[in-house]
Structures are given as C-alpha cells and as structure tokens.
Design a binder for these strands. Structure first.
Lengths: 346, 346
DNA sequence: CCAATCAATGTAAACCTTTACATTTTCTTA
DNA sequence: TAAGAAAATGTAAAGGTTTACATTGATTGG
C-alpha cells in the first residue's frame, strides 16, 4: 500500500497544506517543520500522486504522441526526437498507435483526455473528418503529416512532393527512363505526395511515366520484397526502383539479391526517409533524407510554444524540406554504351 | 473548453449519477432517460476524464514501460510487442526512457505513480539497489533483463549466456580461433552475460580466449564501427567478429567494407538479437535470435496475470532462450588451406 | 502592555469522477 | 385504492492533490 499526503501530515503532526508546501518548494515553512516533514516523506517513501495533482492543476506534464505504428526505425526516430525534446522540459511522453484505424484513434484520444497537456498526431491515412471529430478542443494539437488542410490546427508536413521529385530528377539525370516506384497505401497522403512528385518530375521533361511501373506496397520490408519480385519478372525490366520508403527499399534489395542481380550494376535502387540504417546497408542506400528525429523535436517544440506563450496567434503550418542523400545504390546508365550494345546485337 | 459530467447532467436535467450510469453502461436507466443523456453527450462532445476516473477507480487501464532507450529496432520491437498485447486488453502504454540514468529512472517511476496499473522495467545497467528503491510497492512490476536477483519481483531474462556460447561454438566449429568480440557497456548485464557465454565456449574446449580481442562498444552502430576500425588495424587480424548486438554488427560491416574487405570471404561477422533488418542486410547477418517482440508480449501477459487473478503466488522468473539464425555473414575457415598457404610462404 | 504587523500554519473548496446508500416514482396486487 | 415491492433517480462521500482564505502565534512600535 502506498501512503498519501494525509498519512504524511498525520505522522508529521502538521496539516496537509504544509506538507504540500514543502513538496512544492513554494511558500515559507519554518525550516524545522520542513525537515520534520521531509524526514517523514523519506521514511514513508511517499511519492505524490501525479494523477491527482494533474486533476487539480490542470497540468499533467505529459504530451501525447499518436503514431500510425510503433514498428520500425522511422517511428522509432520520431519517438526518440519527441522524447528528447519532452524530457528537456521535464515532461513525459504518452505514445499510442492507431494502425490507421479510426476506432483506435478515437480510443487513444479518449485515453489521453485529461492525461496530457497537448497532443501530437501523425496520421497520414485516416482522413480529416474522422480525425478532426475526435481531436480535443481543450489542449493544443499538432498535426504531423496528416491529410487535412484544416487551418485551425498547427501542422507540420514533410515535403514528399519535392523530395520525390528531386530523387526522380536525379535518376532521370543518371539516364534512367524506366523507373519503377513502390508506393505506400492508396490513401496514404505521404505516398500520394511522393507519387505526385515522381510524376511531376517526368512531366516537367515532357515525359510520361509508365503507370504500369507504379507498384503498390505498404511501407513494409515484405511489401517491398514482394513488389520487387513482380518487377523482376517483367520482360522489359526497369533500370531503377524508387521505393517510397527505406523499409521497402530494403525488401527490394533482398529480392534483387536473391535473383542474383547486382546493385547498382544491374539495377539501381533508392529509398525515401533515410532512416539511420540506410547508410549502413551495402551498398549504402541512396535515399531522400527526411529529418525524422527533428520532426519529433519540432512537433514538441511547437507544442511548448503553445503551452507557454499563450499564443492565440494563427496556427503555424510548417513545411519540412528534404535533401538527397546520394550513396552507392544508384548508377549512371551509359546510354551510348547501351545503344552500342544494341547495335552490336543488331 | 471541455464540458464535464456536471454540464451534461444539467443539460439533460438529471443527476450526475445517472449520467455516470449511462456512460458506464451499468445499472438500469429508463431508456428514455438514457437516450436523452446520450443525445446531450453527443451534442456537447463530452468525453469522460479518465484521469479523474482512474483516481477513484484505482484503475487506469494503462501499463508503464520503462526502457533504457527509445532508439533503434530492438526497443522498437519490444514496444511493438508490448503495445500489441496491451491493446488486446483495451489498455494503453506509457513509455519512458531512462538512458540508464538513475535520476531519470526515478523521475519516470514517479511520473507513473497513479497513472498506470503496472510497470515493466528494462534496465540492464542501473543496479539493483537504486532500481529497487524506486520501484512502487502498490502495483505489479515485471523486471525485464535487469541486473537483480531479487526474488520478490517477476523477472524475465533472455539467455545471453547460452546464446553467446552457442554462437561462439558455431564460430569455433567453423574453424575460427581468433574471434574478436564487441561488448556493450562494462556494467551492462546483457553484455556481461554474453561475454561470459563467449568465454565459456572457449573454456569448454580448453582454450583461452584472447582478452585483447575483447573490444568495448556501447550497443550502437557507431561504437561498432569504431571498434572495428581498431580491430582491422591489428597486425594479427581476427578471422571473425562477434558483435554483442546487431547494431554494432552493422557498424562493423560498414567499417570492414570501407577497408575494402569482403564479408565473409575476408572476415566473418555475426551479431546478437536478430533485429528484423538483420535478414535484409547483405550479406544477411548471422545472429543470435532473441524473440524481441515476444519479450514485450510476455512481460505484458505476466502483468495481466497479476492484475486479473490476484495471484499472490510466488513471483515467476522466466528465462527466454535464444536460437541461432545462421545466414551468410560467417564462413568456414579451411585450416588446411591456411596451413598450406603458410607453408607456401615459408 | 496593547494594537498592529507578519510569519507560519490550518481549513475547506475545487478538480472530475464513481458508487453506496437514500429517496422518489412507478408498478403490482390484494 | 392503498400498501408494498421494484425500478429509477438523486445525494454525498471518496479518491489525492493544491491553494485561497482564515486563523494562530510571535514580534514590533508606541
């Protein structure tokens, strides 16, 4: 059984108010009294109940973080960044996963009611309506890569369009024409944006990307692996595979290796996100670098801005740009030598 | 502003008790009344405050999970397993990281007071005393890979000793004699156990492992990378590197590649944990397979056992055994051909 | 030596629920 | 139709805190 503040007060022969005062360091308490109380606290190993305190203070010192999933390095990094930023303020993190399911989102958001001072939601799949309907009105909310344009909330979006476009341009510049893409889910905003970027890069060169080279994955290693096996069966094999995240790229690499092909000699592969392990793969993976860790930090910092300065100001909409991390998994295609080869064959 | 149960009661023209009854589905309320209340709840978008409910019910429907770190696939998998098991019971997870710092452990444990129904702690580094002093007495606790032999708590331990021994035997059987190891921190129980297993495998063959081949890492890619660079400088280079976790193995692979060496042709590498990405590396990484995800599940299940059956029974001490995941990063050394080579040189 | 001031401490309301017990309303049945 | 039972609803305490306000005791100035 745990003791409460009343037990401490009784044992120390004072009122609970005085105990509360020494716990919170505030007010002036006769040092004699203070020490006596401290001694009792130590003896009873009394720990204040933060839930009760949160109730009356309307301050929990916790931030809620709702992610689609807890699986893999991407989310792991977001969590780490958020946790870092939160700990720096003496706060704590309450993490939940939604699996892109509106019921789970609702459950998680309910759970957080009264338990957190602010909420960060990352939900690239579940659409506006459902999400917004469940968002609490009483605490600050930051939307991370959510498919909503509601200007009422603070939002942070990574530039999937720009990143994918840049990567596609890079591949096109290397001479690749047949570039297969591995997309995430149909209605995943991140996947959609990346697809848009990919297509746009082609369009700007008056090229039409081949729709039959757009393969549907689900941001998992396995889905990348399977889609790539299909791709490798194609008679006119693409010269490059652009996976819309690194996990799928990792799956793709495995499938390619199993087929006895060499990367990037036989086929180029690149990913998106630039998760920490990307640079350690072999060949090291060329990827679109998203500052994943910083995404978490930024979201938390935004939350604290709201929390401290009672900034009633208009909501902020941040756009996080990406950079290319060029490594060794993509190769220039020598068109001339290709032509020559064909000529030789002819 | 959020509404509370009193607002709902007023608006519906009933008492808060009745509102509470319809919220909790219990008791019999005239269906007419029930519907009216439900309508008001809907209208006001009322969500009960679980913190307040937790206070009086002494049940929060949350489980605390305290990990050394939130970084990387290993912890990510533990979290995922725990989250899965917890969600299956309609519970939620409160995750915190301690960074192996006793102050942070204390802070996290304080935070959890009154906020969780049970706590799972993984703390391979901070020692018994400090940990035990801060553990709550009022809720079930499960210790995951902690350096304590206190029989009072439920514990789950992975068999680091057995796993490392098995892997070392595997390497010895392949003909390796000079096997370098990359350890975790000095006072990390997991690292200690693995080191013990490694040494024991040698001892059982009446061999003495070369202490100068025990390199100190910290379970991170970078530390594995750096230690390996040192190793590669050795005049009498080891034929195999056994990293005590996969992250360090990944770092080792990078260092080896940078040196222009081939795995496993020039040097064998293996890891520990068998994180999901291990099988996707190239060469795919031979590793000691720890059922990471299941560790989380087991811990949670143990917690629910305590929570449901008020099992006052003696605490359980589970020992999780490992298996070898043999892949392509380790090669048999042909001792004969080595000898021949030397002879040729001579 | 008394009133005024100030420091130290105590009392009780508030935060938002749930629920045992009390009360009111409705329904049965003689 | 009245009494008694059953059903529906209400009242208030409890859970563990914080804090505005009240009270006590000591100190100071006249």
């Amino acid at each position: 059984m745990h003791f409460n503040i009343i037990d401490v007060a009784k044992k120390a022969g004072v009122s609970i108010a005085t105990v509360s005062r020494v716990i919170n360091g505030s007010e002036k308490v006769k040092s004699e009294t203070r020490e006596k109380i401290l001694a009792v606290i130590e003896e009873l190993k009394y720990v204040p109940n933060p839930a009760a305190r949160g109730l009356i203070m309307r301050k929990t010192e916790a931030i809620g973080l709702l992610l689609p999933d807890l699986h893999g390095e991407f989310f792991s990094e977001v969590i780490r960044g958020a946790d870092e930023a939160v700990q720096a303020q003496g706060y704590h993190l309450i993490v939940s996963s939604s699996h892109n399911d509106s019921k789970e989102i609702e459950a998680a958001l309910r759970f957080m009611r009264g338990r957190v001072d602010a909420i960060i939601v990352m939900s690239p799949q579940v659409d506006s309506e459902i999400l917004l309907a469940n968002l609490p009105k009483s605490v600050p909310v930051v939307l991370l890569n959510c498919r909503t344009s509601n200007p009422h909330y603070d939002t942070i979006m990574t530039d999937g369009f720009g990143g994918a476009k840049e990567m596609t341009n890079y591949l096109l510049d290397l001479g690749h024409k047949r570039i297969a893409v591995l997309t995430g889910g149909e209605n995943n905003i991140e996947s959609q944006e990346r697809l848009r970027g990919y297509r746009n890069a082609f369009a700007e060169r008056d090229l039409t990307p081949n729709r039959s080279l757009e393969f549907r994955g689900s941001f998992t290693e396995v889905s990348g692996y399977e889609a790539t096996r299909e791709i490798l069966l194609l008679k006119d094999r693409p010269t490059a595979i652009f996976a819309f995240n690194d996990s799928m790229a990792i799956g793709a690499i495995k499938a390619i290796r199993e087929e006895g092909l060499k990367i990037p000699t036989d086929i180029s592969v690149c990913g998106f996100d630039d998760i920490p392990v990307a640079k350690f793969l072999s060949p090291s993976l060329t990827s679109v670098c998203v500052p994943i860790h910083d995404l978490g930090v930024m979201a938390v910092n935004r939350v604290f801005d709201r929390l401290t300065k009672r900034t009633k100001g208009a909501s902020a909409h941040m756009f996080v740009s990406t950079t290319l991390s060029i490594r060794n998994s993509c190769k220039r295609i020598n068109i001339m030598s290709n032509l020559e080869k064909e000529e030789n064959v002819a």
